[in-house]
Every structure is written in structure tokens, then in C-alpha cells.
Amino acid sequence: MITQFTPISALAGGIMIGLSAVLLLLTSGRIAGISGILGGVLAPRHGDVSWRILFIAGLLTGPLLYALMVGGLPDVTIDDSLPLLVVAGLVVGFGTRLGSGCTSGHGVCGLARFSPRSLAATGIFFAVAVVTVFVSRHVVGV
């Protein structure tokens, strides 16, 4: 499916994501990595859960706030089969915990901290994702 190139809203949205990460670090001293924040809820430590749940609640509500303030929501098109969604969810969940981060923790926050580990992780998951998309769209032909 073709999507429009939207540089302005992409940049503006990106800046908001960056500001979110700065706000969390400045106020709580924590890294805004979604897999890490969610992972910490699933492996709870005393006194370290409520801020995570509140961040996730905000993340869930953000699109609704957008609908209220801007009006309308972007398309979310998912036409994958149920088994594919399950497999993808499992490997993303397992992989982000094993690798200590995802697009937000390694991609945004890690790169912003000039972390060599995050640079390596980001390079690897982007490269692997590009190959995966190439195979699934152009070789297997889903």
C-alpha cells in the first residue's frame, strides 16, 4: 500500500517524541524506552511500577488527545493474518528484552546519548527489518 511522504508532520511528531524523552529524563531520571518501561511492569520491583503504568496510560491516551485537539485519527491498516501477528509479537517482545531496547530506547534515547551499544543495536534491527520486508514483500510476495 502506498503512503504519502509527510516530512512536516513526521518531523513535528518526532520532535514531540524527543521532548517526551527529555521530560522523562529531566523529571524522573529515566530513559523513555517503551520495551524497557513495559518490561519493568512485567517484572515489578517495589516502588518502580506506578510511573511506568502512568507513562503507558499516557501513551495509550495520546492518540485520543490528538483526536480531540486536532480532530481525526491517522489510518491504521493491518492486514496480517492472526498467526503472523502472534509470531511477530512474540519475537518483538522476546527480542527487545534480550537486546535491552527497541526503536525508542536504542533508536531515539541511545543514539541521543551517543551509546555505541545503541548504535550497534539500531543498525542491526534496521538492517534486519529491511531484509525481512524485502523477503516478505518481494521474494515470498505476501
Partner: peptide, 13 residues
């Protein structure tokens, strides 16, 4: 921060 993150992701599609 969560709200800002979710809003940004939505704006950026």
C-alpha cells in the same frame, strides 16, 4: 511524557 509520546507518534502517523 507518555501523552506527549503517544501524541507525537499519532501526528507522525
Amino acid at each position: 511524557a507518555g501523552l506527549l509520546f503517544g501524541f507525537g507518534l499519532t501526528l507522525a502517523q
